[in-house]
Design a protein around this nucleic acid. Structure first.
Lengths: 207, 207
DNA sequence: TCCGAAAACATAACATTGCTATGCAATGTA
DNA sequence: TACATTGCATAGCAATGTTATGTTTTCGGA
């Protein structure tokens, strides 16, 4: 009937674009396909244009974040786990700073929303687990606490990665999360220990 | 000796660009000067190119924020004032969402840093005043608390303005600030009242 | 008062951008 | 095996930011 579209080309282009993003090469229609043997039309068959490519890159960013979350083992301390998720969010953003920027600048169509919600759900689940373990006030809304954790993570990383604040600003993470979770009802000493433990899960080297 | 550059043209172009930003018209070199009688070279004499124009727009954004801060009267309750500054930051960003985005996407050269620091200093001063009034632990670092307030404000507004979260998410502002300031040592009940009062200073209509 | 230099500005051309029109080739189905 | 449908290459298009070049304006010094 018709020639079949090779999905490998799609992922190849996305990975190439992600690589160019990381190496700070400007991503243009022609520079993207240069050297690959493909013509510019490949971008149109697979993504419908450059806008489609950027959208696919945003999806890729959320996919990598989800993969990072998948690789994390939960513990019996949900506040530690919640902190670890926030720390992983920061690490992911700092490992792929340009990709992270792409994820949040042109946004937001429906698919972007779904991708963002899907990663947020990890935080919500863990916050709920903490609530069920009696760490928070009984009327604490898990989603609300998850969103607040996300706000801190996003504010931190977007002011640090290419923003006006220095990398040391990340040290504000633990105290801010601690204040947040204590405010939600956690026992101060226990909370500090949990956040401390969760923060250290990150593989941030000497930051 | 030489023809003198008219500074009025510079501000005219900036205001025109800011207006086009607000009305979602794409800002291109030619569209910017179209209808003004100027030629495209005006942008080069006054800004050195489009990059210079974007940089001037970022400065304009910080200038408007500073003007908003200038218009605010301080009270005898510095925690209320600190909250009011954060609320004003949010209002400013929501009043000029596109300008706000410009302020933080391409950033950051030295002048941008200075402009950001200058507005941050308002928060630092107020946080220091709160510390001197005995609201916080004696070892609370004002700049640290100011930065943490900024992180919350920026995280909130950048996830809400054009981001994945709804406008109602702004309701997370007061509880987050309250948790932060209580964590810094403020008395819980007094803190809640101060934050409540500071938040209401904003002219956000029914949000 | 006038001249000359220096800077602002207008005009126009340039390379590069994303995109589209068109034709060809490949491939699965009838 | 014939054919229709789709992937893809080539080439050209309008629009972008920039630069090259010439003109005009303005101000300081003779």
């Amino acid at each position: 009937m018709a020639r079949t579209k090779d999905p490998a080309i799609r992922t190849l282009l996305i990975e190439r674009a992600a690589h160019m993003l990381r190496t700070r090469e400007p991503i243009t229609l022609r520079s993207l396909v240069a050297g690959t043997g493909m013509s510019t039309m490949a971008v149109y068959t697979h993504f419908g244009g450059m806008d489609g490519l950027w959208k696919a890159l945003r999806q890729e960013g959320f996919t990598r974040l989800a993969a990072r979350y998948d690789s994390m083992a939960g513990s019996e301390d949900p506040v530690r786990d919640l902190t670890a998720l926030v720390a992983a969010y920061l690490d992911n953003a700092l490992d792929h700073p340009d990709l992270y920027q792409v994820m949040f600048d042109a946004s937001v169509d429906l698919e972007d929303l779904e991708a963002a919600d899907s990663t947020l759900d990890r935080l919500v689940d863990t916050a709920r687990r903490a609530g069920e373990a009696g760490r928070f006030h009984p009327d604490t809304r898990p989603r609300r606490l998850a969103v607040q954790s996300w706000i801190i993570a996003h504010g931190l990383v977007s002011l640090v990665a290419g923003g006006p604040l220095s990398i040391r600003t990340l040290d504000n993470g633990p105290p801010m999360l601690t204040a947040l979770y204590i405010g939600a009802g956690d026992d101060p000493d226990r909370c500090r220990a949990s956040v401390e433990a969760g923060w250290r899960v990150s593989d941030r080297a000497g930051v």
